[in-house]
Design a protein around this nucleic acid. Structure first.
Lengths: 301, 301
DNA sequence: TTTCAGTTTTTTACAGATAAAAAACAATTT
DNA sequence: AAATTGTTTTTTATCTGTAAAAAACTGAAA
């Protein structure tokens, strides 16, 4: 059966919203809450009745008002707000990065299902997903082969990434001056400067900024295949940041400066400069990934 | 439950093999048969016992020999040899091409399951597949949106195709002279000449040759993402050939000549010539696809 | 007449069950 | 000993069932 993670997530988010409310004030309509929480009205109603049960809100007639401010105990634990599908995806990547799988190894769905305490259906769904990511290969009527985050994988993914990002960057340069992307680029640049000012404390925030910049560039491609592919990159990087912490501050410092040069090139609209700065940055990023792959291999051999 | 399409397919293929045997001759070992039929020994044994039941083969001791030649009636109907997953994939594409879906329309899994007389699980599995193909978009906890084979789709897919094929063609040109790919290229070229000699009768065979040439070029990329993407192209083309028959002979005639020029360029190893011929051919192919998309849209509006 | 909350209907996300197929193991024959 | 067949164990593909969530419908209130 379906878990009620959607409900619990909405519940917690609703508590966050209510924490900013003054006592006694009326809540917004169910429809507005549904839109704010990004769930259906059905789920909002479930949340509201659970809040009423906990005496956080109370009804007077057809309206609801805030009775008491929510406390830590009113929240569902973070772990319960993750959907089964997200859990499986996360745990699968963790398995890979902990070296529980070796490249070429066959994957046992039932065993994984047991390990992750879900059903084989949930596992199967995710295996097709990772198949698309190039991490697995399906042998029809037979087992799945784990292909692994190997040197080959890193080289292949970067070959495509470079092609796609150069193409997208060119498109970006052609955007009309009033496009929203330019002001987003300005905002990203400012964030880079802020980060550099406090690099010692804030260097860990780089990954989010990296994602934001590259996603913005890729968006200019207006090509669903390019964007789909960036999801793959993004996922790999999301985990990569967690698995190789060596020289993290130094790496991020270098990358921030490369980003600034790249941003300046984009703004200059000079295609050759864009190519040069983009290539430089991607080559650094590739080296980092390759080093991590090596690290991963040595840790597990 | 699982259908026994694998068994039936193996059964029919085994009958084909036996049709070439002389009466009384002994069959090969179970293991050899399994390898020849590309199934497990378990399935081979099921096939052999069903053949024994039909008095086509007979056992003497531990060996088996052919008793009578198989007849048409011994075969399972073609329709029963397709796995559920293949059926769903095929029928889904047929639906798209018959205009049963309109771009932007929401897809109803249960309704589709009813239409295709399978379960929602089989449908769901295929929807994720088509999601990856850019034909659908998933809205979490909600319906799937059909994006359709639109002009945008054709433009986007060709943008990537051109990037990937040019890159692969360059790699192809760099292959050592003794690589197997060169002799396969020779064979493909000869097939082109044969086809051109009998273009009036054989023009329909072009699509298989087209797939063979482009697949060969893409193989040189040695990049799993390029190869995965070619599967998308290949699928679209497989159906495209069935949905637009207008000017088929003329189109194929032109394409065959473009292929020959492309092959000659590859053999010359001159990168500029390769780029030129490859681009020319892909642009023609794109025009054809765009015309078909138009055709599709007008037929369904 | 638009916006709301109450109610009902559909649909999705998963779990669980099972025949078919594969794989592993055991016993025989060449 | 190597190759084959017989038997048992696992694993996959797929169907069915159900709580959770979404969507659609309905009547009341602003």
């Amino acid at each position: 059966m379906k878990s009620n993670a959607v409900f619990k997530r909405a519940h917690n988010r609703c508590l966050n919203m209510l924490a900013k409310h003054e006592l006694g004030t009326h809540l917004r309509s169910e429809l507005e809450l549904a839109q704010a929480l990004d769930v259906s009205r059905t789920t909002v109603r479930a949340v509201l009745s659970s809040l009423a049960n906990a005496n956080i809100i109370h009804r007077d007639g057809s309206r609801r008002h805030l009775v008491r401010s929510p406390v830590a105990d009113d929240y569902f634990p973070e772990a319960q707000t993750e959907s089964v599908s997200d859990i499986v995806g996360r745990r699968f990547m963790e398995w890979i990065l902990q070296g529980d799988f070796r490249p070429g190894e066959l994957i046992n769905c039932a065993e994984l299902a047991r390990q992750f305490s879900t059903s084989t259906s949930a596992i199967r769904e995710h295996l097709t997903h990772f198949n698309h990511f190039g991490l697995l290969e399906r042998r029809p009527n037979s087992a799945w082969v784990f292909k692994g985050i190997t040197t080959d994988f890193a080289m292949e993914i970067y070959e495509i990434r470079e092609m796609f990002e150069l193409r997208s960057a060119h498109r970006f340069a052609e955007l009309p001056p009033d496009a929203a992307a330019w002001s987003e680029l300005d905002a990203i640049e400012r964030e880079h400067h802020h980060l550099l000012e406090n690099i010692d404390e804030r260097y860990r925030e780089f990954s989010r900024l990296d994602e934001r910049l590259h996603r913005l560039v890729h968006d200019a491609s207006q090509n669903r295949f390019v964007l789909n592919f960036y999801d793959v990159i993004s996922m790999i990087f999301h985990y990569h940041y967690q698995w190789n912490k060596a020289d993290e501050k130094e790496r991020n410092y270098v990358a921030l400066h490369e980003h600034l040069a790249y941003i300046a090139a984009l703004r200059s609209r000079d295609l050759d400069a864009i190519d040069a700065k983009c290539r430089t940055h991607l080559q650094t990023a590739r080296k980092t990934l390759l080093k991590s792959v090596d690290h991963l291999r040595q840790a597990t051999v």
